[in-house]
């Protein structure tokens, strides 16, 4: 585990973040739009990873809360004529408030059942969104021009503003999740990731930690939903609650990048965007390819690319754990227990 390597990796990361912060001065409008989408995807990947990689909740219904955020934003601005700057936090709050009853019902299911339960819940939210009066029914509706113009009078200004908002969202989502993982609760989450039974018997309150994580992701997913509405300038049940864009792609990203780490989802998102540019002409084939790759990853390298990096001795660039102090017993493996047997959940 070499310090120069770590310093180099952190320097690249810092340069990347600085380049993103200076984005509007560095990139053209096209690149800014792609990056705006990239930051939305990174946010979604971080949230899916927090649930699947740490809290043992595999969500196939993440698109439900993305759609709620988009629809709430539309409701507050286009229907209630509120300022967009009030509508954005209110959309996050609405998503959180809707997540509470959803959680109360589907948390009666566990493990594999819960995964399908999240899917049912998302389907229900989508079907209800299509029934709401004023939201354009099943085919959806466009954001009114006065609402859009609040983000900037000229198109160039709006592109810069959407870029800044989605970059801000991804940064806050990342820093907040990192802080969560480094907190006392995060210590419990890391223990759950490595061995759930052992974590439970060492005093980690599994149920409360799961509830916290599930509700933690809701406002971030809702805000990502606001960004999707701004990006497309419209809301529609099939687009705002799109399972392919907001969940299936995200699962592939996290699985291939590395589940149960902070670096994995980001690495996966970068790979996904590169791959997508190359494979854009191949239609359904690129999803088939992603499916094959991710099955291969799960069978042969379950912790994904970042897991492989860890095994080769590459240190975590963004350690979610805490380095052992002086006098701590020598560790053979990387900074987390790779050899710990996977949690066996029964029933």
């Amino acid at each position: 585990m070499s310090t120069p390597m770590l310093l180099g990796a952190r320097a690249i990361l810092a340069a990347g973040v600085l380049a993103c912060l200076a984005g509007p001065w560095l990139f053209d409008a096209n690149s800014l739009t792609v990056l705006t989408e990239f930051f939305i995807v990174v946010t979604l990947a971080l949230m899916w990873n927090l649930l699947a990689g740490y809290a043992d909740i595999i969500s196939v219904g993440q698109q439900g809360f993305v759609g709620v955020g988009a629809y709430a934003f539309f409701g507050f601005t286009a229907l209630l004529h509120m300022s967009v700057w009030a509508a954005v936090p209110l959309a996050a709050l609405t998503t959180l408030l809707i997540a509470v009853p959803v959680m109360a019902v589907i948390f009666r299911l566990r493990t594999a059942y819960l995964a399908v339960g999240t899917w049912v819940a998302a389907d229900v939210l989508m079907l209800i969104a299509g029934k709401l009066p004023g939201f354009g029914g099943g085919s959806g509706t466009s954001l009114p021009i006065p609402v859009v113009k609040q983000f900037g009078a000229r198109l160039g200004d709006r592109i810069d503003m959407f870029y800044a908002l989605s970059l801000g969202l991804a940064l806050i989502a990342f820093l907040a999740t990192w802080a969560l993982l480094r907190s006392r609760i995060g210590l419990g989450l890391t223990a759950m990731r490595d061995n759930e039974e052992a974590a439970g018997s060492s005093g980690v309150d599994l149920v409360r930690t799961r509830i916290l994580c599930f509700l933690w992701t809701a406002p971030f997913l809702g805000l990502a939903g606001v960004m999707t509405a701004l990006e497309k300038l419209r809301v529609a049940p099939t687009a705002s609650f799109n399972i392919t864009d907001w969940t299936i792609d995200i699962i592939f990203i996290v699985v291939i990048g590395g589940i149960g780490s902070l670096e994995g989802p980001i690495l996966g998102a970068i790979l996904f965007f590169l791959l997508r540019q190359w494979l854009a002409d191949f239609g359904a084939w690129y999803l088939i390819l992603l499916g094959v790759i991710s099955i291969g990853v799960i069978l042969f390298e379950p912790k994904g690319l970042w897991g492989a990096c860890r095994r080769w001795g590459f240190p975590d660039i963004l350690p979610a754990g805490h380095a052992p102090g002086p006098g701590a017993p020598e560790r053979v493996a990387g900074p987390d227990a790779q050899e710990a047997p996977a949690a066996r959940t029964v029933g």
Binding site: T111, A115, I259, G291, V292, I295, I298, L299, P302, R344
Partner: peptide, 12 residues
């Protein structure tokens, strides 16, 4: 190996 791998394999 727990519930995660099998769910993700059948998902793929």
């Amino acid at each position: 190996k727990g519930i995660l791998p099998i769910l993700l394999v059948t998902f793929g």
